[in-house]
Design a protein around this nucleic acid. Sequence first.
DNA 1: CGCATCGGGTGCGACAAGCGCAACGCACGC
DNA 2: GCGTGCGTTGCGCTTGTCGCACCCGATGCG
Lengths: 264, 264
Amino acid sequence: MRDERERGGNLQSVNRALRALELIAEAGELGVSELGRRLDVHKATASRLVATLAERAMVERDPITEKYRLGFGLIRLAGAAMASMDLVRTARPILEDLADRTLETVNLGVLSGDAVVYIDQVTGTRSIVAVSWVGRRTPLHATSNGKMLLANLDDRERDRLLAAPLPRTTAATITNAGKLRAQLGEIRARGYATTMEELEEGLNAVAAPIRRADGEVVAALSVSGPAFRMRPVDLPRIGRVTMEAATAISRRLGYVERRRPAAG
Amino acid sequence: MRDERERGGNLQSVNRALRALELIAEAGELGVSELGRRLDVHKATASRLVATLAERAMVERDPITEKYRLGFGLIRLAGAAMASMDLVRTARPILEDLADRTLETVNLGVLSGDAVVYIDQVTGTRSIVAVSWVGRRTPLHATSNGKMLLANLDDRERDRLLAAPLPRTTAATITNAGKLRAQLGEIRARGYATTMEELEEGLNAVAAPIRRADGEVVAALSVSGPAFRMRPVDLPRIGRVTMEAATAISRRLGYVERRRPAAG
DNA sequence: CGCATCGGGTGCGACAAGCGCAACGCACGC
DNA sequence: GCGTGCGTTGCGCTTGTCGCACCCGATGCG
């Protein structure tokens, strides 16, 4: 508790409790004494800690081994958030297929606050860089995923997000809200979004919307690769296959295509 | 901190932290002051609490609204919880098989407080809606899972839960404790529970009990689908396959069928 | 068997963790 | 301008909680 303990808010026992959960998650199963050792506290402390966690069903006791493991309380807590995990499971095979087909990197992104967060990724074998973007947050206005999500927000939300300044990361970044707004219209009409070196030099991407049963856009699916392999002339074709893949995922989520939702 | 504070282990701030997470989960988004009010603590305390949670990514701040929502750390934990919970792990293949066989949605639910929480779900391909119920809480008296869990509670617990009013969600909801109690008896005798449009109009379901090694009912397995595909006349058949599946899971958990447990 | 060792749980006193207070800065609305 | 709402932070007092010691039960070993 003397090492990296200097960040903002800090409640000792809360911190410990969360560390405990992480340790248990890592280990799968942990006994009281062992947990105490890893947390560097007396086993009595660890005992009381897990008892508290157990009371809230955050951990549960294996009736055989008497050790503690994570409990369903966590699942309940994450509930809504877990919907995205479900999305990952459902979408995975289609992401893989799309990556095979395009040989580029495929990403699945959702809106989180004012950024897009990638919740899954599959890299085509041809990909140069294999860094995982999962968990990464990237700006809405400079990514294809972000634009697609923006394009499908309701007006109030979109206005709020576009009111903030749009930071420039490359020469091509669209920093003008009006110009971006116009492009969002095109994107809705066309069905896929693009970025051309707007986030990173030499990186292009296209993205298509994923809808759940009620038609709401909940995520975006993107294919991204180096500008020399994804030239402007290639984008419509890649856009089409991306849209097909996204639609396939939407269908799995229960979405049934109706006539243009714009009308209704 | 003066109400229901008498269980085993009890660390005030850990308890508070978990309550905070639950409140945020419920509300979707919560500001510091509001959280403080609901936790019945000074807003300064709430501020330090969420700061600690945020540091571990259990909550994150919406950059626009400045409010807090659940974070990715929790998703990670919940994912780990699902993977490590041996009930889910054990039951999964059987859920999938049951979904294939019935072509309807299969849910695995446990009792949590006064509600049933779904900890896993597999959807049959025929399913209309594919919204995930995982993490969702539904009332005990209006769901097949809930009735099955209620039916297998010990008398004291059951009485306590039935003492509370039974909220109506559809015209068919059973709101009379006496009537429900009678049905629970039938359910125990028959081995499966049903709901017919008692939670949602047009939604029927059947559920069967899952027992661990000592015979205790720890979860319920349900098959649910639209009323037109799950007519009253179909329920016994579906009930049978559901019971078979539930029994298969129980067996994997170490339960060995004995002569009627009612006798011993 | 008897003894040692390891696991988990609990009453108690001491001490610091963390609580509420109050004051501050900031953003709105009028 | 003022009033009201938000979230954050220093500070002193209190109370939550930590480690100690000890208990219980299971297991291992000469």
